[in-house]
Lab assay of single mutants.
Amino acid sequence: WEITFERNGKRITVRTTDHRLLELFEKLWRNGADERELERLAEEINR
């Protein structure tokens, strides 16, 4: 799966075969987690 999240013109794409990681990322994104931390998390998930 691949999903791109966008907020205030900032886009972060997450790619993984584990839908649970996408759900976790989406919850953090929707709850306003720090964008720098989300970028780092996305990099780890995308590996």
Rank of each mutant, 00 (worst) to 15 (best):
residue 28 L to E: 10
residue 39 E to S: 09
residue 40 R to N: 12
residue 6 E to D: 05
residue 23 E to L: 10
residue 25 F to W: 04
residue 15 R to L: 06
residue 8 N to K: 04
residue 44 E to K: 07
residue 32 G to H: 11
residue 36 R to F: 15
residue 47 R to C: 06
residue 15 R to Y: 11
residue 27 K to P: 01
residue 37 E to V: 13
residue 36 R to M: 14
residue 11 R to W: 12
residue 43 E to K: 07
residue 17 T to Y: 11
residue 29 W to K: 03
residue 14 V to F: 06
residue 28 L to F: 10
residue 20 R to P: 05
residue 25 F to D: 00
residue 15 R to T: 11
residue 37 E to P: 00
residue 25 F to Q: 00
residue 44 E to F: 15
residue 24 L to W: 11
residue 12 I to C: 02
residue 2 E to M: 05
residue 30 R to H: 11
residue 19 H to N: 10
residue 16 T to A: 10
residue 19 H to L: 15
residue 37 E to W: 07
residue 16 T to L: 05
residue 18 D to L: 03
residue 30 R to F: 13
residue 31 N to A: 09
residue 33 A to R: 04
residue 11 R to E: 11
residue 34 D to T: 12
residue 23 E to Q: 12
residue 24 L to N: 06
residue 3 I to M: 14
residue 41 L to V: 10
residue 42 A to D: 01
residue 18 D to R: 03
residue 3 I to H: 13
residue 21 L to D: 07
residue 28 L to T: 09
residue 38 L to N: 00
residue 1 W to D: 08
residue 43 E to H: 08
residue 18 D to G: 03
residue 22 L to G: 02
residue 41 L to F: 13
residue 46 N to S: 06
residue 39 E to R: 07
residue 24 L to V: 09
residue 37 E to F: 12
residue 17 T to S: 14
residue 13 T to M: 05
residue 1 W to Q: 08
residue 7 R to T: 11
residue 8 N to L: 04
residue 25 F to S: 00
residue 44 E to M: 10
residue 23 E to D: 12
residue 20 R to L: 12
residue 25 F to H: 00
residue 6 E to W: 05
residue 5 F to C: 05
residue 35 E to D: 14
residue 13 T to P: 01
residue 35 E to K: 03
residue 6 E to Q: 06
residue 6 E to L: 07
residue 9 G to F: 02
residue 11 R to P: 06
residue 35 E to Y: 14
residue 25 F to N: 00
residue 14 V to H: 00
residue 10 K to H: 14
residue 7 R to L: 13
residue 46 N to D: 05
residue 43 E to L: 05
residue 40 R to G: 09
residue 6 E to N: 04
residue 35 E to G: 05
residue 1 W to E: 05
residue 22 L to V: 10
residue 21 L to P: 00
residue 45 I to D: 01
residue 2 E to G: 06
residue 5 F to T: 01
residue 28 L to Q: 08
residue 43 E to N: 09
residue 46 N to T: 04
residue 29 W to V: 08
residue 37 E to Q: 10
residue 8 N to E: 09
residue 41 L to Q: 02
residue 12 I to M: 06
residue 24 L to I: 10
residue 5 F to V: 15
residue 32 G to Y: 07
residue 21 L to G: 02
residue 46 N to I: 10
residue 20 R to V: 11
residue 34 D to W: 10
residue 27 K to G: 08
residue 38 L to A: 01
residue 16 T to K: 02
residue 39 E to I: 11
residue 22 L to W: 06
residue 17 T to A: 13
residue 23 E to S: 12
residue 36 R to I: 15
residue 27 K to Y: 14
residue 24 L to S: 07
residue 26 E to L: 15
residue 24 L to Q: 12
residue 34 D to F: 14
residue 19 H to Y: 14
residue 21 L to K: 11
residue 29 W to G: 03
residue 11 R to S: 13
residue 27 K to R: 13
residue 21 L to R: 05
residue 38 L to H: 00
residue 45 I to A: 04
residue 34 D to M: 14
residue 25 F to A: 02
residue 23 E to H: 12
residue 28 L to A: 15
residue 35 E to S: 10
residue 16 T to M: 03
residue 47 R to W: 08
residue 30 R to A: 12
residue 18 D to T: 04
residue 44 E to G: 02
residue 5 F to D: 00
residue 39 E to A: 06
residue 4 T to Q: 06
residue 40 R to H: 11
residue 18 D to W: 03
residue 21 L to T: 06
residue 1 W to I: 11
residue 31 N to F: 05
residue 7 R to F: 10
residue 31 N to M: 13
residue 23 E to N: 10
residue 2 E to A: 03
residue 2 E to P: 02
residue 39 E to Q: 10
residue 42 A to Y: 07
residue 35 E to C: 07
residue 23 E to P: 02
residue 27 K to H: 14
residue 37 E to T: 14
residue 44 E to P: 00
residue 8 N to Q: 05
residue 38 L to S: 01
residue 7 R to Y: 08
residue 40 R to C: 10
residue 6 E to M: 09
residue 41 L to D: 00
residue 1 W to N: 08
residue 23 E to K: 12
residue 3 I to W: 12
residue 9 G to W: 01
residue 31 N to I: 07
residue 36 R to K: 15
residue 15 R to Q: 08
residue 41 L to M: 11
residue 10 K to V: 13
residue 47 R to N: 15
residue 31 N to L: 10
residue 13 T to L: 05
residue 38 L to G: 01
residue 39 E to L: 10
residue 17 T to N: 15
residue 37 E to Y: 13
residue 30 R to D: 11
residue 36 R to L: 15
residue 29 W to D: 02
residue 32 G to E: 08
residue 26 E to V: 14
residue 5 F to I: 13
residue 32 G to Q: 06
residue 13 T to N: 04
residue 27 K to N: 14
residue 12 I to T: 03
residue 32 G to D: 07
residue 32 G to N: 10
residue 40 R to S: 12
residue 31 N to P: 01
residue 42 A to Q: 03
residue 29 W to A: 04
residue 3 I to F: 12
residue 29 W to C: 05
residue 15 R to W: 05
residue 45 I to F: 04
residue 1 W to G: 08
residue 32 G to P: 02
residue 35 E to M: 15
residue 45 I to K: 00
residue 31 N to W: 06
residue 24 L to K: 09
residue 7 R to K: 13
residue 34 D to A: 09
residue 19 H to F: 15
residue 3 I to R: 14
residue 38 L to I: 07
residue 42 A to L: 12
residue 5 F to M: 04
residue 16 T to V: 08
residue 12 I to F: 13
residue 44 E to Y: 14
residue 34 D to K: 03
residue 17 T to D: 12
